[in-house]
Amino acid sequence: MNLVIQSPEPLGAAHVKPLIALARGSQAQPIDPYAVRILDANPAQRGDVEAYCATHALDCAFVRPRLALSDFGLVAMDMDSTLITIECIDEIADFCGLKAEVSAITEAAMRGEIKNFDESLIARVALLKGLDADALEHVYIERLRLSPGAEAMLGAAQRAGLRTLLVSGGFTFFTDRLKARLGLDFTNANTLEIVDGKLTGKVVGEIVNASVKARTLRETCEHLGIPTSRAIALGDGSNDLEMMGEAGLSVAFRAKPVVRAAADVALNHVGLDGLLRLF
C-alpha cells in the first residue's frame, strides 16, 4: 500500500525516516510541503503508524497505489461539522437562549449515544418553536463558514468529473444556499416548518436520518449509473456511518471516535483538501 502522511504545517523531514521504518516502507515521495507518500508500506503496521501520527498531530492513510480521483464518480458529504464548521441547529437555538441544551443533545447524537436520531431531532426542533424565522438567515450570514479546504476539494472533484451530493440531518434552508453557492449537483436535508414567519417546532416530511442518508447515496449512484463503490463519502457523526459504509471510500473528517474507527481514512488535522493528497 501507499501510506500518505499529512500535516497542517509544513511536514518536517525529521518525521520521514521514522515513518518509513514504522511502516516498513521502501521510500518516500514528497507530495507538497505538507504531505509525503511512503511506498510499499505494510498496512499491518497501521497501529504503530497511527500512534506516531497521533503523538505528532499528523494524519495518515493507507491507500491503494495508483488510486485516482477520477476513479470515482460521486463525492457525498455531510453538512454540519463536515462541509461547514458549525452545527446549524445549535446556532439557531442560540437565538432563543437554548444553545447549551440543544448542543448537548446534538453532541450525544453524533457520538452515537442517542440511538434514535429521529427522536433527538424532533426534540431539538421542538425547542425552537416560536422563534422568528429570520434567525436562520442570521445563522447563514453571520456564523456559517466552510470547513478549511472545502472549496479546493470540491473544485478538484468537479474538474475530475465527479458529481457532488450534500446529504444532511440538518436543514434545507442551509443546503439549498450551499448548493447554489458551491455549484453542487444534489442535496437532501430536513425541512423546518415555518408559519407566519415563525418556526413551529416541527419538521415537514421524511426525516433525513442515517438510513435515509445511505439510501440517498445509493439512489444518487443509481441515477448516475455508477456502482456505490465509485462513491466517496465524508462525514463526522454516527448518523453518517451507514452512508459511509455504502461508499467505496469513506472519510472521517474531524469526526467522533466511533466514526474514525469505522472509516477507511480519518482526517483529524488537515482540511478537506487533504482528500486530494490521497490520489
Rank of each mutant, 00 (worst) to 15 (best):
S7N: 09
P10W: 01
A13V: 13
L19M: 09
L22H: 01
R24S: 14
A28T: 10
P33C: 07
A35C: 09
I38M: 05
D40E: 14
A44Y: 00
A44V: 01
A44P: 00
T55Y: 07
A57H: 14
V63E: 10
R66D: 15
S70E: 14
T82G: 10
T85W: 04
E91S: 02
G97I: 01
L98N: 03
A100L: 05
V102L: 06
T106M: 07
E107V: 12
E113F: 00
I114H: 02
K115G: 00
S120Y: 00
L121C: 01
V125S: 09
Y140C: 09
Y140G: 09
E142L: 06
E142Q: 15
R143P: 08
L146K: 13
G149R: 12
R163A: 13
T164C: 10
L166V: 05
S168I: 09
F171N: 06
T175V: 01
L178H: 01
K179G: 08
L182S: 08
D185T: 08
F186P: 00
T191A: 14
I194T: 14
T200Y: 00
V203I: 15
V204W: 00
E206R: 08
S211K: 11
A214H: 05
A214C: 03
E219C: 06
H223Y: 05
R230L: 04
I232D: 12
A233Y: 02
D236C: 11
M244S: 03
V251F: 08
R254S: 07
K256S: 09
A261F: 05
A262H: 13
H269F: 14
R277N: 07
